[in-house]
Write a protein that binds this DNA or RNA. Structure first.
Length: 223
DNA sequence: GCGACAG
DNA sequence: ATCTTGTCGC
């Protein structure tokens, strides 16, 4: 089996046309979700974590981890094809579906406007926000690492997202609309979910769960 | 042609 | 992403 990138590119372009960048979700958010993906056995196994938090208290309501065989390599610009199968498996286990889902990776801040947050948003028909730790494409003005600083991420006269300094002395986050959320709301909701750490709570918990970090171990022990 | 390139 | 200790700075 070989990979036909030409074919996948066309698939992305077709899907990108279906992405909605306007607010289309209940104004009252009661549950927010976060996702993160990790790998095991030299990448043979893809491990996806999904966590649901109550908003605005950020208590963990439930979390799930799904492991599936990795069926696609990592190719910049095609990350979603590698990670979405495991994310869908984890999603099936979710009882309390969130009102908003924070996805690790780009939303429309992607060469063809279909980062994993947008792709997953379409597959789940859920409002999603892309929260990436690195830039994939687009240009922006370098900002002092002072919490609160924010500048547009632009690609060819078009704003594809935001570069946000979420915490002092930390590298910025790359925020972009995934699906059914406006760029302004994406930035707004990330800010509303920040609690003194670089990552917004849904992403921070998903990160801890997917990688079995101290925050998660402590949580398990307390349970 | 060369470098850049989410996780 | 992952393999990994200590270390520097806020």
């Amino acid at each position: 089996m070989s990979i036909n990138l030409e074919q996948l590119m066309q698939t992305q372009q077709a899907l990108a046309k279906q992405v909605k960048c306007d607010d289309d979700f209940n104004a009252s958010i009661n549950y927010v979700g976060g996702t993160d993906v990790g790998f095991e056995d030299n990448g043979k196994i893809t491990r996806a974590a999904i966590v649901i938090l109550r908003y605005p208290t950020f208590e963990v309501v439930e979390y799930h981890i799904a492991r599936v065989e990795t069926g696609f390599p990592y190719i910049p610009g095609y990350l979603s094809f590698r990670e979405y199968p495991a994310l869908l498996a984890a999603w099936q286990q979710v009882t309390q579906k969130p009102d908003l889902l924070f996805v690790d990776g780009q939303g429309v801040a992607h060469p063809r406007r279909l980062g994993i947050a947008s792709h997953l948003g379409l597959l789940l028909d859920m409002p999603t926000i892309g929260v990436a730790k690195k830039r994939l494409c687009g240009q922006y003005e370098i900002l002092p690492k002072q919490a609160g600083n924010v500048t547009p991420l632009q690609d060819k006269q078009e704003q594809i997202g935001w570069v946000l300094c979420s915490k002092n002395n930390c590298n910025p986050l790359f925020i972009s609309t995934g699906h059914r959320v406006s760029q302004d709301s994406a930035l707004n909701w990330v800010n509303l979910c920040l609690r003194g750490y670089r990552l917004p709570e849904p992403t921070r918990w998903a990160d801890a769960i997917a990688s079995n970090k101290p925050l998660f171990k402590k949580f398990i022990y307390a349970e």
